[in-house]
C-alpha cells in the first residue's frame, strides 16, 4: 500500500511555526477510520484540522478507540506542515473525556525533540 503523500514543509505557512520541530508530540483529537487505516484527526471540522496517518499495522493500535476522543503520544519525525502527516509510531494512546467547558481543547504539544528523518 502506498502511504499517503507527504506535503512539503513551507516555512511561510502559519502552521510551520508549530511543526518545525520533529519529535514526540502529545496529540488530542479523535480517531476515525478511513479506507486504508485508522487515523487521528485533530481540530476536526475546523480550518486548522490536521490528519495524522499511520502505516496500516501501526494504525491498528487505534482500532479500539474508533470514533472516540483520545490523547496519544506519537512520533512525528518527518516534515509535517500541520495538515496531513505520517507518523511511524504510536507511543501510547488513551481515551480522553473532552472538557465540556472547552470541547475544542485539542491540539499538539511537543514533548520530546528528535532529529527529523530525511525524506
Amino acid at each position: 500500500m502506498k502511504y499517503l503523500a507527504l506535503l512539503l514543509l513551507f516555512p511561510t505557512l502559519s502552521f510551520a511555526s508549530m511543526f518545525t520541530d520533529c519529535g514526540e508530540y502529545t496529540v488530542k483529537g479523535v480517531v476515525r477510520v478511513g479506507p486504508a487505516n485508522f487515523a487521528i484527526i485533530v481540530n476536526e471540522k475546523t480550518q486548522s484540522e490536521s490528519i495524522i496517518n499511520f502505516p496500516i499495522t501501526e494504525s491498528q493500535k487505534l482500532g479500539a478507540y474508533m470514533d472516540r476522543s483520545i490523547t496519544a503520544v506519537v512520533l512525528l519525525d518527518k516534515a509535517f506542515n500541520g495538515t496531513v502527516g505520517l507518523s511511524e509510531k504510536i507511543v501510547s494512546v488513551t481515551s480522553r473525556i473532552p472538557d465540556p467547558l472547552n470541547p475544542k481543547d485539542t491540539g499538539f504539544i511537543l514533548t520530546k525533540k528528535v532529529d527529523c528523518k530525511k525524506i
Binding site: 500500500m1 479506507p35 486504508a36 485508522f38 491498528q60 482500532g63 479500539a64 474508533m66 481515551s95
Partner: peptide, 26 residues
C-alpha cells in the same frame, strides 16, 4: 477500553483495509 469497544465493527473495518494493500507484510 474493551468493554466500550465494538469488536464486530472494528473487525469489519480492518477487513476492508485488507483489500487496500498488496504488500505481503501489511
Amino acid at each position: 477500553t474493551i468493554l466500550s469497544s465494538k469488536p464486530d465493527e472494528i473487525i469489519a473495518n480492518i477487513s476492508k483495509m485488507l483489500n487496500q494493500t498488496k504488500d505481503p507484510y501489511e
